[in-house]
Protein backbone atom coordinates (compact mmCIF):
# COMPACT_ATOMS: atom_id res chain seq x y z
CA UNK A 1 0.00 0.00 0.00
CA UNK A 2 1.04 3.59 -0.50
CA UNK A 3 0.23 6.03 2.27
CA UNK A 4 -1.75 9.19 1.57
CA UNK A 5 1.35 11.29 0.96
CA UNK A 6 2.71 8.77 -1.53
CA UNK A 7 5.30 7.24 0.77
CA UNK A 8 6.13 3.59 0.18
CA UNK A 9 4.63 1.64 3.05
CA UNK A 10 5.08 -2.08 3.45
CA UNK A 11 2.74 -3.97 5.76
CA UNK A 12 3.66 -5.20 9.22
CA UNK A 13 3.58 -9.00 9.63
CA UNK A 14 3.83 -10.80 12.94
CA UNK A 15 5.99 -13.94 12.77
CA UNK A 16 5.28 -17.23 14.55
CA UNK A 17 7.71 -20.14 14.53
CA UNK A 18 6.91 -23.78 15.22
CA UNK A 19 10.14 -25.41 16.33
CA UNK A 20 8.95 -29.01 16.19
CA UNK A 21 5.74 -30.94 15.74
CA UNK A 22 5.54 -31.25 19.50
CA UNK A 23 5.48 -27.46 19.92
CA UNK A 24 2.93 -24.80 19.18
CA UNK A 25 3.80 -21.78 17.07
CA UNK A 26 5.53 -19.13 19.14
CA UNK A 27 5.64 -15.43 18.36
CA UNK A 28 9.18 -14.25 17.67
CA UNK A 29 8.77 -10.71 16.34
CA UNK A 30 7.57 -8.77 13.34
CA UNK A 31 8.80 -7.54 9.99
CA UNK A 32 7.82 -5.28 7.12
CA UNK A 33 7.10 -6.82 3.74
CA UNK A 34 5.36 -5.89 0.50
CA UNK A 35 3.17 -9.02 0.40
CA UNK A 36 2.43 -12.20 2.36
CA UNK A 37 4.60 -14.45 0.18
CA UNK A 38 7.60 -12.16 0.54
CA UNK A 39 6.87 -11.82 4.27
CA UNK A 40 7.12 -15.60 4.55
CA UNK A 41 10.41 -15.74 2.66
CA UNK A 42 11.88 -12.83 4.61
CA UNK A 43 10.72 -14.27 7.93
CA UNK A 44 12.84 -17.36 7.36
CA UNK A 45 16.06 -15.37 7.18
CA UNK A 46 15.15 -12.61 9.62
CA UNK A 47 14.11 -15.02 12.36
CA UNK A 48 15.48 -18.46 11.54
CA UNK A 49 19.08 -17.90 10.56
CA UNK A 50 20.25 -20.28 13.26
CA UNK A 51 17.30 -22.13 14.71
CA UNK A 52 15.52 -24.90 12.89
CA UNK A 53 11.76 -25.08 12.49
CA UNK A 54 9.05 -27.17 10.90
CA UNK A 55 6.53 -24.44 10.21
CA UNK A 56 6.12 -20.70 10.01
CA UNK A 57 3.09 -18.45 10.27
CA UNK A 58 2.99 -14.84 9.25
CA UNK A 59 -0.05 -12.80 10.21
CA UNK A 60 -0.81 -9.26 9.10
CA UNK A 61 -0.64 -7.09 12.23
CA UNK A 62 -4.20 -5.84 11.73
CA UNK A 63 -5.56 -9.34 12.25
CA UNK A 64 -4.14 -9.64 15.75
CA UNK A 65 -6.66 -8.90 18.48
CA UNK A 66 -5.17 -8.18 21.85
CA UNK A 67 -6.11 -7.67 25.50
CA UNK A 68 -4.94 -4.53 27.24
CA UNK A 69 -1.89 -5.00 29.45
CA UNK A 70 -2.89 -3.33 32.67
CA UNK A 71 -6.48 -4.31 33.27
CA UNK A 72 -8.28 -6.81 35.48
CA UNK A 73 -8.77 -9.16 32.55
CA UNK A 74 -6.23 -11.61 33.99
CA UNK A 75 -7.10 -11.06 37.64
CA UNK A 76 -7.11 -14.27 39.73
CA UNK A 77 -6.84 -13.20 43.29
CA UNK A 78 -8.49 -15.96 45.31
CA UNK A 79 -7.05 -19.34 46.27
CA UNK A 80 -7.14 -21.88 43.43
CA UNK A 81 -4.91 -24.51 44.98
CA UNK A 82 -7.73 -27.01 44.56
CA UNK A 83 -6.90 -27.18 40.86
CA UNK A 84 -3.14 -27.52 41.17
CA UNK A 85 -0.80 -30.36 42.11
CA UNK A 86 0.50 -28.20 44.94
CA UNK A 87 -2.94 -28.24 46.52
CA UNK A 88 -2.63 -31.97 47.32
CA UNK A 89 0.62 -32.25 49.24
CA UNK A 90 -1.16 -34.20 52.00
CA UNK A 91 -1.46 -37.22 49.68
CA UNK A 92 2.19 -38.03 50.25
CA UNK A 93 1.68 -38.17 53.99
CA UNK A 94 -1.55 -40.21 53.64
CA UNK A 95 -0.01 -42.76 51.27
CA UNK A 96 2.81 -43.34 53.68
CA UNK A 97 0.21 -44.75 56.11
CA UNK A 98 -0.40 -47.47 53.50
CA UNK A 99 3.33 -47.85 52.79
CA UNK A 100 2.82 -46.40 49.30
CA UNK A 101 3.81 -43.21 47.49
CA UNK A 102 1.94 -40.57 45.50
CA UNK A 103 1.70 -41.56 41.85
CA UNK A 104 3.04 -38.83 39.51
CA UNK A 105 2.59 -38.17 35.82
CA UNK A 106 6.37 -38.38 35.29
CA UNK A 107 6.38 -41.86 36.80
CA UNK A 108 3.61 -43.03 34.47
CA UNK A 109 5.28 -41.53 31.41
CA UNK A 110 8.62 -43.12 32.18
CA UNK A 111 6.91 -46.44 32.91
CA UNK A 112 5.17 -46.35 29.54
CA UNK A 113 8.43 -45.51 27.78
CA UNK A 114 10.14 -48.50 29.40
CA UNK A 115 10.51 -51.33 26.96
Amino acid sequence: MMSADGKVEYGVYEVFVQKSHADHHVHVGSLMAPSPDLAMQLARENFLRRDSAVNLWIVPREYIYTTPYSSDFFAREMDRKYREVGGYTENGRLWRLFKEKTLTMEEIVSHIEET
Binding site: M32, A33, L42, E45, N46, R49
Partner: peptide, 11 residues
Protein backbone atom coordinates in the same frame (compact mmCIF):
# COMPACT_ATOMS: atom_id res chain seq x y z
CA UNK B 1 16.34 -2.15 -1.39
CA UNK B 2 15.04 -2.88 2.10
CA UNK B 3 16.50 -4.07 5.40
CA UNK B 4 14.61 -7.37 5.64
CA UNK B 5 15.60 -8.19 2.06
CA UNK B 6 19.21 -7.32 2.82
CA UNK B 7 19.26 -9.99 5.52
CA UNK B 8 17.69 -12.59 3.24
CA UNK B 9 20.05 -11.87 0.35
CA UNK B 10 23.04 -12.33 2.60
CA UNK B 11 21.86 -15.83 3.47
Amino acid sequence: PDIEGDVAFSS
